[in-house]
């Protein structure tokens, strides 16, 4: 029986090899044009800032220290870098809210598309992506035109006599949320749709036959079945949202920094590339850990059927 086990083992080894070949192109492209160059960033985080940007080739941990600690410029005391934490927390909060909000709006939308007749599904799907042929900046500006004081909503409400003074929506947190949902909606809808499209509606039917309420059907049957889509969609929204700054600054007014602004400041006018590099690696590590935990947990509870 040893041979049979050996054969199986060989087959398994072969399969794993095939799987490596299959993933090679993606891994190589990312290695060359994304991850590999990041090693430069890692290296830079341990160097000394150049006088006018860039770095000097002198080892220093100052960049990393100032991620977490800051020396007060006035009384020279060393304290926890609360400004960095405040900014990071703002980005994190916004990203979480944006993810939940896009899920709330995206889930019904994806469900709606997935339950259309086979003929029209593609049309609905394309309708979701068409607005995204205009780029992010312009899309955000379009939202601005709608919600500003002289914008569509306020003008309409005033003309209808519902209000006499425009409601200040622009430059509020509400505006940022509207913009984020608007900008990231398809990133949620597309993966959701991809996993809902093959949802077996007989299961839904069976649920109703067993006198389940709609909420129960949704929670117990539909949601577990489309979980991979929810995971994918949440990742696609959450991670870019953490790095978002165009939408927050156009609609929120840019008075408060997002984490990406802080990093950009170091690579730009602040001329502290090592700090910028250390900040980016910090955020990357946190996101990466959160992602792994999330994927591990959700992958374990996946429902397999058929």
């Amino acid at each position: 029986m040893a041979t049979a086990a050996e054969i199986e083992k060989q087959a398994e080894a072969r399969e794993i090899r095939t799987r490596w070949y299959l993933s090679a192109p993606a891994l190589i492209i990312i290695l060359l044009a994304a991850s590999g160059p990041l090693l430069i960033v890692l290296l830079y985080s341990f160097l000394t800032p150049g006088p006018y940007g860039d770095v000097q080739w002198k080892f220093s941990t100052e960049g990393w220290v100032s991620v977490f600690l800051e020396r007060d410029i006035f009384d020279d005391t060393l304290s926890f870098a609360s400004a960095h934490l405040t900014i990071f927390w703002r980005s994190l909060k916004l990203a979480l809210m944006a993810t939940v909000a896009t899920l709330v709006f995206g889930f019904p939308t994806a469900y709606f598309i997935a339950t259309r007749s086979e003929r029209t599904r593609d049309i609905w799907l394309f309708l979701i992506t068409i607005p995204f042929w205009t780029n992010l900046l312009i899309r955000t500006f379009a939202v601005l035109q709608v919600i500003r004081n002289e914008g569509l909503i306020n003008t309409a409400l005033i003309n209808l006599g519902i209000i006499d003074q425009p409601i200040q929506m622009l430059y509020t947190d509400f505006a940022i949320m509207v913009g984020m949902v608007y900008v990231y909606l398809p990133l949620m809808v597309l993966p959701l749709y991809a996993s809902m499209e093959k949802l077996d509606f007989r299961l839904v039917e069976a649920g109703y036959d067993l006198y389940a309420t709609r909420w129960q059907v949704l929670k117990r049957i539909i949601f577990p079945l489309v979980r991979p889509g929810v995971v994918a969609g949440s990742i696609l929204v959450f991670i870019p949202a953490i790095g978002a700054y165009v939408t927050p600054s156009v609609l929120g007014g840019g008075k408060n920094m997002m984490f990406a602004n802080l990093i950009e400041l170091q690579f730009g006018q602040g001329r502290n590339w090592p700090l910028g590099a250390a900040l980016s690696i910090t955020v990357m590590a946190i996101v990466m850990m959160a992602l792994l935990v999330y994927v591990r947990n959700t992958a374990g509870s996946e429902v397999r059927h058929g």
């Binding site: 800032p49 006018y52 410029i73 400004a83 960095h84 400041l265 602040g270 001329r271």
Partner: peptide, 17 residues
């Protein structure tokens, strides 16, 4: 000067935090 810019960056971060 670079060290002055570093001070300005801190004030700026403080302002926009």
């Amino acid at each position: 000067a670079p060290e002055v810019t570093a001070l300005y960056t801190k004030i700026w971060t403080e302002l926009q935090k």
